[in-house]
Simulated scan of single mutants.
Amino acid sequence: MPGPKRWSITKSRALKTWAGQLGMDEAVKLIDQTLQEEKKADELLNEVAEQAN
Rank of each mutant, 00 (worst) to 15 (best):
Asp25Ser: 11
Val48Gly: 02
Val28His: 01
Ala14His: 09
Glu37Gln: 15
Gln21Met: 02
Gln21Val: 01
Glu50Met: 11
Lys11His: 15
Lys29Leu: 12
Arg6Cys: 02
Pro4Lys: 04
Val28Gly: 04
Ser8Leu: 14
Asp32Val: 03
Asp42Ile: 02
Leu35Pro: 03
Asn53Leu: 07
Thr34Leu: 12
Ser12Leu: 15
Ile9Glu: 06
Glu37Trp: 08
Pro4Val: 07
Ser8Thr: 12
Lys16Asn: 05
Ser12Gln: 13
Glu37Gly: 04
Arg13His: 04
Ser12Ile: 09
Gln51Ile: 05
Arg6Ser: 04
Lys29Ala: 14
Glu43Lys: 15
Lys16Phe: 01
Lys5Tyr: 03
Asp25Phe: 06
Lys40Leu: 15
Met1Pro: 01
Lys5Asn: 03
Lys5Cys: 02
Lys11Thr: 14
Leu44Met: 14
Thr17Asn: 08
Glu43His: 14
Asn53Ser: 07
Ala19Ile: 00
Leu15Met: 13
Trp7Thr: 09
Ala49Pro: 01
Glu38Thr: 06
Ala52Phe: 09
Ile9Trp: 04
Val48Glu: 12
Val28Trp: 04
Glu43Arg: 15
Thr34Gln: 14
Trp18Val: 00
Asp25His: 05
Trp18Glu: 05
Glu37Tyr: 09
Gln21Trp: 01
Glu50Tyr: 10
Leu44Thr: 11
Met1Glu: 07
Ile9Thr: 02
Trp18Met: 01
Arg13Asn: 06
Gln21Gly: 01
Glu38Asp: 10
Ser8Gln: 13
Val48Tyr: 09
Arg13Glu: 07
Glu26Trp: 00
Lys39Gly: 05
Asn53Tyr: 03
Lys16Gln: 12
Glu37Ala: 14
Asn46Arg: 15
Asp32Gln: 15
Ala27Glu: 11
Asn46Ser: 14
Leu15Lys: 13
Lys29Tyr: 06
Leu35His: 06
Ile31Ser: 04
Asp42Pro: 02
Glu26Ile: 00
Ala41Glu: 11
Glu38Arg: 15
Val48Ser: 05
Glu38Tyr: 05
Ile9Leu: 06
Gln21Glu: 06
Asp32Arg: 10
Asn53Asp: 04
Leu44Asp: 14
Ala19Gln: 01
Leu15Ala: 09
Val48Leu: 15
Asp32Ile: 05
Val48Ala: 11
Gln51Ser: 03
Glu47Met: 09
Glu37Lys: 15
Trp18Cys: 02
Lys11Tyr: 12
Thr17Gly: 08
Lys39Cys: 05
Ala41Tyr: 09
Lys11Gly: 03
Glu26Leu: 01
Glu47Lys: 15
Leu22Tyr: 00
Trp18Gly: 00
Trp7Ser: 10
Lys39His: 07
Gly3Tyr: 08
Glu38Phe: 08
Gln51Glu: 09
Gln33Tyr: 12
Asp42Val: 07
Lys40Phe: 13
Thr17His: 08
Gln36Gly: 07
Arg13Thr: 04
Leu45Arg: 08
Gly20Pro: 03
Leu35Met: 05
Val28Glu: 10
Leu30Met: 12
Gly3Arg: 06
Asn53Phe: 01
Asp32Pro: 02
Gln51Val: 03
Leu35Arg: 08
Asp42Arg: 11
Glu26Asn: 00
Trp18His: 06
Lys11Phe: 14
Thr10Ala: 14
Gly3Cys: 03
Gly3Lys: 09
Trp7Leu: 12
Lys29Glu: 12
Gly3Asn: 02
Gln51Phe: 07
